[in-house]
């Protein structure tokens, strides 16, 4: 049968459910092994952050679409967390292979990395299920609320510049993403590059300033040992 937009959407949802229905809500034994290999074990930081951001997500979701839909918000977040752990494991495996290192202490204790990775996973789930809701305010007034990107950045208080850093690695680490989802993530990238990363509170300006200062300094002699 011909692919209609509804059929495509249903297929994408079924595919995501198939992958995540059997996935863990908590770090797998492989992830735990990576955490145990770290100089500073990141487990508590990671699980506390998942809990805290979950509360923020569910509050904001219910506020946006109505308290009656809070359970749906909870289900969406749960799927996002499963995808987050799945992609994290895949990323670490490929980094281990590429760099031949087993200790990812700095990366796994970086709050901006985790916040951005989790935001990316939740964005994929939210986009899969659709992010536009019609809310009835009174019996005859309806309004549309939009939970699509960059909504998740505001909810998690993530800088677009940090979110941008994880997109490409996320796509590489999750080969089951549909073509439509990759296009969506690419559109998020473009919006960040063209607009959001240049807003007043972006860390990009400090980074550019630091880069300029480094370039302006006379060449430093090489350190004797590294």
């Amino acid at each position: 049968p011909p692919q209609t937009p509804v059929r495509t959407a249903m297929n994408t949802i079924q595919q995501l459910q198939m992958i995540l229905n059997t996935a863990d809500d908590k770090p797998s034994s492989t992830l735990e092994a990576y955490f145990n290999n770290c100089t500073v074990n990141p487990t508590n930081g990671i699980t506390n952050r998942v809990e805290y951001l979950g509360q923020k997500f569910q509050e904001n979701f219910a506020q946006a679409v109505g308290e009656g839909w809070a359970e749906i918000g909870s289900q969406r977040y749960k799927l996002g967390v499963r995808l987050y752990y799945r992609v994290m494991e895949s990323m670490l495996k490929s980094e281990e292979e590429r760099l031949s290192v087993h200790n990812f202490s700095k990366l796994l204790n970086d709050a901006t990395f985790h916040g951005s990775l989790l935001a990316c996973a939740v964005e994929v789930v939210m986009t899969t299920y659709g992010t536009t809701w019609n809310i009835t305010l009174t019996s005859d007034i309806q309004t549309e609320t939009d939970l699509s990107f960059p909504w998740i950045l505001r909810v998690f208080d993530i800088k677009a510049y940090e979110f941008y850093k994880v997109i490409e690695s996320f796509i590489k680490a999750e080969p089951t993403l549909s073509r439509e989802m990759i296009k969506h993530m690419e559109r998020c990238e473009h919006r960040i590059m063209e607009c959001i990363a240049w807003q007043m509170d972006s860390p990009l300006f400090d980074i550019l300033k630091q880069q300029k200062e480094q370039e302006d300094q006379p060449d430093q002699p090489e350190p004797t040992s590294t």
């Binding site: 990323m91 490929s94 980094e95 590429r98 760099l99 990812f104 700095k106 990366l107 970086d110 901006t112 990395f113 850093k165 994880v166 490409e168 690695s169 796509i171 073509r179 990759i182 296009k183 690419e186």
Partner: peptide, 21 residues
């Protein structure tokens, strides 16, 4: 991935982007 433009250099990954190399 056919239409996606990859920005990372070859041999570069998430570790470099978060200054972990």
């Amino acid at each position: 991935f056919q239409d996606y433009h990859f920005g990372l250099d070859e041999g570069e990954g998430i570790s470099e982007l978060f200054d972990c190399d």
